[in-house]
Nucleic acid binder design. Structure first.
Lengths: 239, 239
DNA sequence: ATTGCCATATGGTCTAGTCCAAACTATTAT
DNA sequence: ATAATAGTTTGGACTAGACCATATGGCAAT
């Protein structure tokens, strides 16, 4: 009786072995849920439950109504480094792309006003961008800029590094950033952009940036596909 | 037709509203899955799916065969601060406890040897500890110490701060730490200790510590209940 | 070549149950 | 009082289907 496992444990172990043993390669499609349920003689619900679990582990991911696929290796991401996104990714021999989804100008809603430490009605620009690694959408980014710091920014190419733009066009240097990392679920608009289910787990990063005059100039919300990233931080002391 | 929602969306929204509106308070028990399925006239599977989703969001958590409960607010955790766990928690007016689960002495397996940059067979001590906030087990910690750096450490009280012990007994100061933050799922022994399902999402933190001589002396694996924590890091530049 | 349409494959969601194991509770025997 | 026991409640796991919405690819009309 020690050999016999739960149905879902068995399929999980088999698939994990296949992936770890490189019999299933990154980006490769798994058999459909119906095929798996026949192969393992279990119902589709049990198959789904096993796949859900492997998804949480970060081994596979789903594309809505297309199927299940093996996750590529995670990229290392050091938010504290000066390095731009594209540079950081290409150093890992992966290909990064950035797509500008849209720009809105509005009054800061209370949730954002709190983060930006605004005490009165203040206009902001909100950029929505989607970032790809090796062609897969893995990161949804929302930048909220305090408009008065960035006159005429909307005429620039906003698919590039904002940090560079801040410095070249406005002379801003980063003096401080604050980061919050929160394991939570994807809001509707994020889920849609990343082609994941609303409510799926995600790693949310809230970043607040200060310029060289110690003023908060913008904040950023990053939503990472949880299987795509390792946050990697090195902390050397200066003493 | 715009009013009618999916069954699971409806129950999710109702429960989320109840929690956000403080009608359901932290640590309070939700009605049982069977009661909810009757209340909302949906099957238990749909109820479970909605609860799963709220769990991922971090609003509720389950205790095996006991029920579903409203998550307390997240604690802020800054791994880069010098601050001890107990101090950090009590500054947030929460109560921290630490329980030593066990100590093993062994040869470093390859996975750990790699992290500790060991090139040959090396004895290590492995401490397993469980940390509670307000009586709830939220953090499983595994410390892997290179034995030769810590003679006689097993005779000490290991439920206290290890950092303090390193300094007082061995004169070690931390000169550098490296952190990896990985959203993944709970391994079996971790799930058991935290009373969560094997395979449930977790935030894993791998930490490697260097002493004042720039030697790696130990590493630590932290497994956080994902609804219990916000990682909060402040990055001031020195230029 | 392009466009529009349709069939198919696929995952998303749901119904209506069953059986099981662990946690808890109330009762009973000592 | 204490300990053993039996019943109840609870979530965990599963069966065996159903219908829906969308992504895709092939085909036909333009």
């Amino acid at each position: 009786m020690a050999i016999k496992k739960d149905a879902s444990k068995n399929i999980k172990e088999v698939l994990r072995d296949q992936i770890n043993g490189k019999l299933l390669l990154p980006l490769q499609k798994l058999p459909s849920e119906r095929e798996l349920s026949e192969l393992f003689s279990i119902t589709r619900i049990s198959v789904k439950s096993a796949l859900d679990s492997l998804e949480i582990e970060g081994l596979i991911y789903r594309e809505d109504r297309r199927g299940w696929f093996v996750s590529p290796p995670r990229v290392k991401y050091n938010p504290l480094s000066r390095c731009h996104f594209h540079q950081m990714i290409s150093e890992q021999e992966r290909i990064a792309e950035t797509q500008l989804l849209g720009v809105k100008s509005m009054m800061a809603p209370s949730s954002i006003a709190t983060i930006l430490a605004l005490s009165e009605l203040t206009p902001i620009h909100v950029l929505e961008r989607l970032r790809y690694i090796d062609g897969r959408a893995v990161l949804f980014v929302e930048n909220c800029l305090i408009s008065e710091f960035f006159p005429d920014i909307l005429s620039e190419n906003l698919a590039q590094s904002l940090t560079t733009l801040y410095e070249k066009k406005y002379g801003f240097k980063n003096s401080r950033s604050h980061f919050d990392f929160i394991p939570t679920s994807a809001p509707e608009h994020v889920a849609h952009a990343l082609n994941i289910r609303p409510g799926q787990q995600i790693l949310k990063i809230c970043r607040v940036n200060y310029n060289q005059h110690h003023q908060i100039i913008d904040c950023e919300f990053e939503y990472w596909r949880p299987d795509a990233v390792i946050i990697s931080i090195d902390n050397r002391e200066s003493f």
